[in-house]
């Protein structure tokens, strides 16, 4: 027989964007240690429905740690206590019976709460829309092997591209900065030969969008890396800073040469 746990949960309940939220205390018993954290919440929700109370809303989808939909703050830590693990992959055997857990949504000015533990992360999409792409039209590509990419660069680009866009980095940062997210996306593309033509515009536009969304500045706390379920390295932030500096210089050169031509 597997062990079971009894827990006290304090869960942030909030009806919608405009209403005030607050913690509500729940008790749950007989949670299997083999259940995932979200299965524990499923179990709570079934009990709430049976009692005529509305279930707790939380974002989730793939439940295998790759879609980036899930995420909540568990006792102060985005995605909870286990390193390199999304909330959906966290299992109850990491907790003890009798534990008291506080579950909150990701907190950031740029991520308004939609309901309970669900926040609006559309600002991250808009950062990508501003420049986080390579504009290769469908059908215009040369043969794949005509573009050589040194293995080291491809591997490093993949390290950055592994970002799942969950937003835990923002929630972990005391400034609610989105630098790690932005740096990962820009870094992935800037490391590849295909990404060079748009590199300057990409960096300037993404950073500008990030700033306009209300994310804070990066002041090198590196809490983001600590919270990141995919282990994205803060080295990419350093790289983004270098790319940003370079992009500023280059765009000024382009502007001044435009002026002289005029």
């Amino acid at each position: 027989m597997s062990k079971t746990l009894n827990l006290v949960l304090h869960i942030w309940r909030q009806k919608n964007r405009d209403s005030r939220g607050g913690f509500v205390r729940y008790e749950i018993s007989d949670v299997s240690e083999h259940s995932s954290f979200l299965e524990m919440l499923d179990q709570l929700n079934e009990q709430l429905i049976a009692r005529g109370e509305e279930p707790v809303a939380f974002d989730h989808d793939c439940r295998e740690g790759i879609c980036g939909a899930c995420g909540m703050v568990i006792n102060g830590e985005p995605h909870g206590p286990q390193k390199l693990t999304t909330t959906c992959q966290l299992h109850m055997r990491k907790f003890k019976s009798g534990d008291e857990l506080y579950l909150e949504p990701f907190r950031a000015q740029a991520f308004p709460v939609i309901r309970d533990l669900i926040v609006d992360r559309a600002p991250l999409d808009r950062i990508v829309q501003a420049g986080g792409f390579i504009g290769a039209r469908t059908g215009s590509a040369p043969d794949a092997n005509s573009i050589l990419v040194p293995k080291e660069n491809a591997d490093r680009a993949m390290d950055a591209a592994a970002c799942i866009g969950c937003g835990a980095c923002v929630a972990a940062c005391p400034n609610a900065s989105a630098m790690l997210f932005t740096a990962a996306k820009a870094g992935h593309l800037n490391l590849l030969p295909q990404g060079q033509p748009e590199r300057t515009a990409r960096v300037l536009n993404m950073v500008s969008q990030m700033d306009s969304e209300g994310f804070g500045h990066c002041t090198n706390h590196f809490e983001c890396m600590e919270a990141c379920p995919k282990g994205i390295d803060v080295d990419f932030i350093a790289k983004l800073n270098r790319d940003y500096l370079r992009a500023n210089v280059e765009s000024r050169e382009v502007n001044s040469s435009d002026n002289s031509a005029g």
Binding site: I134, D143, H188, L192, Q194
Partner: peptide, 10 residues
């Protein structure tokens, strides 16, 4: 494959 590589799929 050509298309994906051009888009920067690592």
């Amino acid at each position: 494959i050509d298309q994906c590589v051009a888009q920067g799929v690592p």
